[in-house]
Design a protein around this nucleic acid. Structure first.
Lengths: 112, 112
DNA sequence: GGGATTGTCAAGCAGATACTTAAGTATCGG
DNA sequence: CCGATACTTAAGTATCTGCTTGACAATCCC
């Protein structure tokens, strides 16, 4: 069981590549096979498979093979992890700004 | 003016490194100078400055130099960009699942 | 069976990336 | 003015990444 930290690391690393984000983009409107995924991209099928490996390891994509065809779909778990990390940092930051704003308002009131 | 695509690319690339995320983590509880930022990290100050350059170029961090001290703080613009990208893909995906669920429910009803 | 389709695996390589070291600049405090 | 502080910049390097090629399954369908 990978620690939360490692999982976050994997997810953001995976999202760091634009080709992988393009794959997620495509998958967000429904499951697609590997070869159909590769069609619009200007890279080899082998390269696409390597990206898919990264995406799967990071919990962003789930794949299932039936017969000789592998079908890929989005796994929301990974996206949720990333989304939560961002929103946590953001809310921390915003809460701080709130406190600062309150403090300044207090100051202002006391000055009158 | 960088296209939205380039901006997204920069943000996710910046978030892809764990040291840079650690910097954001630290900054989320308030502005910090460069050298204080470098203290807990096990890398050179020069390396930290390089990371800060990336973070600033991607709109995740804002810095200001007064005297010889550079103070860094979070710039929410970058985080918002990333957050929105993720939530857009997620909502696309979830809407699709909703339609699928509705379809299956219809099927089930008609089968009786 | 046999040819076509769909994917997998393993090297290998060019360029990107994170880091270090070393030398330099600017500012502060006494 | 001078030493200490706080960066800044440039160059070099070792490792990582994304990609290709080429050989190899496994499955489908005629």
């Amino acid at each position: 069981m990978p620690s939360q930290q490692v999982a976050i690391d994997r997810v953001f690393h995976a999202l760091g590549d634009s080709t992988r984000r393009a794959i997620l983009q495509k998958l967000s409107s429904g499951p697609v096979t590997v070869s159909r995924l590769a069609k619009p991209l200007k890279i080899t099928l082998a390269a696409v498979v390597q990206h898919l490996q990264v995406l799967e390891d990071s919990g962003l994509v789930q794949t299932e093979k039936t017969g000789r065809v592998r079908t890929c779909s989005i796994e929301p778990r990974g996206l949720t992890l990333a989304e939560r990390w961002i929103s946590e940092r953001r809310s921390l930051w915003e809460r701080r700004l709130d406190r600062l704003g309150q403090f300044l308002a207090e100051e202002d009131k006391n000055r009158s």
